[in-house]
Write a protein that binds this DNA or RNA. Structure first.
Lengths: 359, 359
DNA sequence: CTGAAAGCGCTTACAG
DNA sequence: CTGAAAGCGCTTACAG
C-alpha cells in the first residue's frame, strides 16, 4: 500500500501562504478575542490559505502551551478481557458527556487496583487532564502514592479518597427496597447472592437485604446468603451447588442478586434444574444494565442511573480541572449520592401457592 | 476541597536538583542509547533527583518533538447511547493489544458516518497517531475527504477505503455453515432475520443463507426473510408482527439471526407467544458476543473472533504508523479475512416431530 | 563523558 | 491593526 502521509500544514505554512505571520493566522484560526483586531481582508486571506492547505491545529503543541490536552481518562478493571456491564454503562455516560464538552475520552484497562498504581502514574503525564476511576479499590497506603498533579473523580470508590469527589448511589436503600418489593409480592424465603465480602457495595446491599427482612420479622437465614463476586459464572456455580446440596428441601421463593449478571447466572442454574422463572422462583437483579433487558424473561431490577452518574463525573472533573485541582463540591456533599429506582419486569411474580422443593 | 495541584517537575528541575543539564537528565531518564555515555555517579544523582521530585515526563512535550502521541483512536457509532456488543468486543480487543504496546486508546463515539466526517478531521490533529474505524459506512464522495495525515485501519468497512487495510471475517461462509448446521439437524423451514439491506455484512449473510438453502434444494421463501437492523428491539417487533400475521399457519422450525442481539429479540417474541426455544423453535445467532452466553437458553451462534480482529487492527495500525503511512499488508491481502467458527449451545435442537402452527 | 543550541507547533504577552 | 520575541517541556544533533 502506498500513499505515505505527508507532513501536515502548520500555522507558519498558513501564515506564509497568506502573507502574514503565524501569530496572525493563529489569532483568526482559533477565534481568539485578538482576532477581532484583524482586518477583514487579511482574515479572509488567512481563512482561504488554511482551507487550501487543509490546516489543522496541532493538538499536542496546543496542549503544551495551554497545559490542557482536552481529554479525560477513564480507568476501570478489565477482568478476563471483559469490561463488565456496569463499567460499560458508566463509560458510555462519560463518553457522551465528554464529547458534549469537546473532550476526548481515553480508556485505560487495569487488571488490579493494587498492582496497577504505577500505571496510573504513567497515565498522568499530561496526556489526560483528569481521570475518572471506576469502582477503585485502594489500600490506605496506596492512596498516599496516587499522582497529585492530575485531578481525580471516583465512582463507587471502596473507600473515600482524600480530595477526590466520589459519586455513588444509594445501594443500601436499593437493596432494602427491592427486598421490600419481594416481600410485598408475598415472598418470605428470599435468597441473596452478594458481591465480594468486604467490598462496600456488596456489604451495603447485604445490609439493605437484612434490614428489609428484619422489618418484616423474617429471620435471617445465612444458608440463603451466597457470594457470587458479581460474576454470572460464579453465581451460576453457586446456585447450582446450593441446589445440589439441598435436594428435597425447600426452594427459595425468590433470589435477589447484587447485580444483573449474577441474576442471569442464577436463572441459568435454575433453568438447568428444570425450574421456571418466575413461576417456580422469582429472580431480581441490581443495576439495570443492558443485560437486564437482554434476557428472557426480562429482569426486575433496581436501577442505578449509571449513565447519568458517569456524565456527572465528567462535569465534576471538568470543573476541577478548570480550577486546577479542588472541586466545586463542598466536603459536606461528598460523596455525591444518586437515587436508585425499582424497575419491574417479568422475572418477579408472586410465589407459587404450594411450596416448591428442590428437585 | 483543598489541595490545589502544583506544577509538576520538569526535566530542567531534575537537572538542577542533580547539578546537571536537562539534557543529561533526559538521557538517563528515558534510557536512550546516549545514556550509556553518562557516568554511573551522575546517573545515580539524576535518578535520585527524579524520584525525589516525582518526575514524570510530559507526554505532550514529548509528542511534539517525536511526532508520536502513543495513543490510537477508535471511532464507532454509538446509537442511542449504546455501544453495540459487536463494537464493544472489538474495542476490548483493541484496548488489550494497545496496552500491550504501551499505547493509550481514545474512543470517539460517532452518531453518523456521513455527518461526522468533520469530526474525524478534528480528531486527527495529532492527538492520536492512527485511527481504527469500526464498521464505517462512507459514500464514495466522503472517502475522498478523509484526513490524510493520519493512518487508518478499518474493520468491516462497508466499502473498501483506498489505502487503508480492512479487516473482516468470512461472513458469507459463516451464514452458509450455520444454515448447513440447521439443515443437518433436520430443519427445512428456516427463517432469516437480516441486518440492513444494502449493508455488505447483511447481504453476505443473506447470500450464505440462500446458498445453503439452494445446496439442499430448499426453495427460498421470501416471507421467511425479515429485516431487523441488527437491533434486538426491531427483531423482536418483526417476529411479533410476523407471528401476528401468520396465525394458524406453519411456524418456522428455526430462526437464523444475523447477530446475537436480534436472536435474543426473536427469543423474546417467541416467549411472549408461549413458544419455547429450542423445543418449539430453534434460534441461532451470529457473532458470539457476551449476550450469547447471557441469555437463557444460551445461544448457538457463529463466532467471529472479534477480540482477535481488534487486536490485529492494532498491529496493522501500529505498523502503518511506524512506517509513516502505508502498511505492511500487500494489496493482495487486503481485506484481511478472519475465519468464523460454529459454537453450539442450547438454543438449537432438532425440530419437533410434529409441525408446529403459529399460536 | 557532558553541555549549549536549535527546534517541534503553538500561544501569550509585549512592542510598534 | 500587525509582527518579533519568548516560552511551554522535551529531544536531537552538534560541539567541546
Amino acid at each position: 500500500m502506498k500513499n505515505k502521509t505527508i507532513r501536515a500544514a502548520t500555522l507558519a505554512d498558513v501564515g506564509r501562504a497568506a502573507g502574514v505571520s503565524a501569530m496572525a493566522a493563529s489569532a483568526v484560526l482559533n477565534g481568539a478575542k485578538t482576532s477581532s483586531r484583524i482586518s477583514e481582508a487579511t482574515r479572509q486571506r488567512i481563512l482561504d490559505a488554511a482551507a487550501r492547505l487543509r490546516y489543522r491545529p496541532n493538538a499536542t503543541a496546543r496542549a503544551l502551551v495551554n497545559r490542557r490536552m482536552n481529554t479525560i481518562g477513564v480507568a476501570a478493571i478489565i477482568g478476563e478481557g471483559e469490561l463488565n456491564d456496569y463499567a460499560l454503562e458508566v463509560f458510555l455516560g462519560i463518553l457522551g458527556q465528554a464529547a458534549h464538552h469537546d473532550q476526548s475520552t481515553t480508556m485505560f484497562g487495569l487488571h488490579d487496583w493494587g498492582r496497577d498504581t504505577s500505571r496510573l502514574h504513567q497515565i498522568c503525564d499530561s496526556r489526560i487532564d483528569g481521570l475518572i476511576l471506576i469502582a477503585p479499590m485502594f489500600t490506605r497506603e496506596a492512596v498516599k502514592t496516587l499522582p497529585v498533579h492530575t485531578p481525580f473523580v471516583s465512582l463507587h470508590a471502596n473507600s473515600v479518597l482524600p480530595n477526590v469527589v466520589n459519586i455513588e448511589s444509594d445501594e443500601e436503600r436499593g437493596a432494602f427496597e427491592m427486598v421490600r418489593h419481594l416481600i410485598g409480592r408475598g415472598h418470605r424465603r428470599i435468597m441473596h447472592i452478594a458481591g465480594d465480602r468486604g467490598q462496600v457495595g456488596a456489604e451495603r446491599r447485604i445490609a439493605g437485604y437484612r434490614r428489609a427482612l428484619a422489618q418484616s420479622r423474617i429471620r435471617f437465614d445465612d444458608s440463603l446468603l451466597l457470594f457470587g463476586s458479581y460474576s454470572a459464572e460464579i453465581a451460576r456455580g453457586e446456585v447450582r451447588r446450593w441446589l445440589g446440596e439441598h435436594r428435597g428441601r425447600l426452594l427459595p421463593q425468590a433470589i435477589f442478586c447484587a447485580n444483573d449478571g449474577m441474576a442471569i447466572g442464577a436463572m441459568e442454574a435454575l433453568a438447568e434444574a428444570g425450574l421456571r422463572v418466575p413461576d417456580d422462583v422469582s429472580v431480581a437483579g441490581f443495576d439495570d444494565t443492558l443485560a437486564a433487558r437482554m434476557c428472557v424473561p426480562q429482569l426486575t431490577t433496581m436501577r442505578q442511573p449509571l449513565k447519568a452518574m458517569g456524565a456527572r463525573a465528567v462535569e465534576v472533573l471538568l470543573d476541577s480541572i478548570k480550577r486546577q485541582g479542588g472541586a466545586d463540591v463542598p466536603e459536606s456533599e461528598n460523596p455525591l449520592v444518586f437515587p436508585v429506582e425499582l424497575v419491574e419486569r417479568a422475572s418477579v411474580a408472586s410465589p407459587p401457592s404450594l411450596d416448591r422443593k428442590v428437585p
